[in-house]
């Protein structure tokens, strides 16, 4: 295994981590602000991916499909928040788990009823449907992966701006830190909850749609992403966007490299990392210390 190959895998890991950040960032904010354990967050990712595959076929273009699927995912999240989630904010975690576990099953069956249980692939959209040739013994590198990584970085910057430079972000951070105080200052928390929920779900859907042209879509996508995002949130600390960002990068790289270096423990590596992090700092490695 050459040094260049490892470098390439690190790049792949960063790509993986950036996509993971889009899912885990929303999950972390929803935990931090709403206090809801949302097991169904991975299902938004899954729907984003499957809708991207389906809508690209229907409209004949990925670029047309993208806005349509984002609107669909956002509408779905809006409906779920209004119909179900807002009634359980004050209930214990056990109830959150129960409701969202039921939603995971229902959304997975909905996926199965709408489409099928097969594996599907999608070509990278036109201007980026090329690969860079890197050399004799290195695999070609798809341009789409670079584009997505760049776009995710831009989005992360945008989220940072939104959270630290706008009134909305300030309100969200206030809600995460001291909810009663924020309410006392006149912040309309139910509306804030709705906005954050829909934003988080849409980001997860977007991540699914962006991943589709390289990775294929298949059943079981939801659990895979959900549990990795949980690991990211545990390592990064609840409610912290920057924590989620750095944790996602570390987890993404570790997950990718472990597949090359220790194939027998590929699936386990990330979780061992998480346990190490827990022993070191139970409140999240990057979380603020009280």
């Amino acid at each position: 295994m050459s040094f260049e190959f490892l470098l390439l895998q690190v790049l792949n890991g960063l790509h993986h981590g950036l996509l993971l950040f889009l899912v885990a960032g929303g999950l972390s904010l929803i935990f931090g602000l709403l206090g809801v354990v949302n097991l169904a967050h991975g299902s938004f990712y899954m729907f984003g991916a499957w809708l991207a595959w389906w809508a690209s076929g229907v409209f004949g273009s990925y670029w047309l499909a993208l806005p349509v699927l984002l609107v669909l995912v956002a509408l779905g999240a809006f409906g779920l928040e209004r119909a179900l989630f807002r009634y359980i904010y004050d209930k214990p975690h056990l109830v959150h788990v129960l409701l969202t576990y039921g939603l995971v099953l229902l959304l997975d069956e909905a996926r199965s009823l709408l489409w099928d249980d097969d594996v599907h692939g999608l070509e990278a959209p036109p201007p980026f449907a090329r690969s860079l040739e890197l050399g004799e013994d290195l695999p070609d590198y798809p341009v789409w992966r670079l584009v997505v990584s760049g776009f995710c970085l831009l989005l992360a910057l945008g989220l940072w701006w939104l959270s630290s430079r706008t009134r909305f972000g300030a309100a969200v951070r206030a809600g995460v830190e001291r909810r009663e105080m924020a309410e006392g200052l006149g912040i309309d928390t139910p509306r804030l909850f709705l906005l954050v929920f829909v934003l988080g779900a849409t980001l997860a859907g977007l991540a699914g749609a962006l991943a589709t042209p390289i990775a294929s879509v298949y059943p079981g996508l939801d659990a895979q992403v959900l549990i990795l995002s949980f690991v990211v949130v545990v390592v990064g600390g609840i409610g912290s966007l920057s924590g989620a960002f750095f944790a996602a990068l570390v987890i993404g790289v570790a997950d990718t490299l472990a597949r090359d270096l220790v194939p027998a423990f590929a699936g386990v590596a990330v979780y061992l990392l998480m346990f190490a992090a827990l022993v070191w700092r139970p409140e999240g490695v990057l979380a603020k210390r009280n």
């Binding site: 129960l98 409701l99 229902l106 069956e109 199965s112």
Partner: peptide, 18 residues
């Protein structure tokens, strides 16, 4: 699609029979 029933059960219990 038997899991639909379990899913509905979980949601109903969470909302109405916690």
């Amino acid at each position: 699609h038997w899991q639909i029933g379990i899913g509905v059960l979980a949601v109903v219990v969470a909302l109405f029979l916690p």
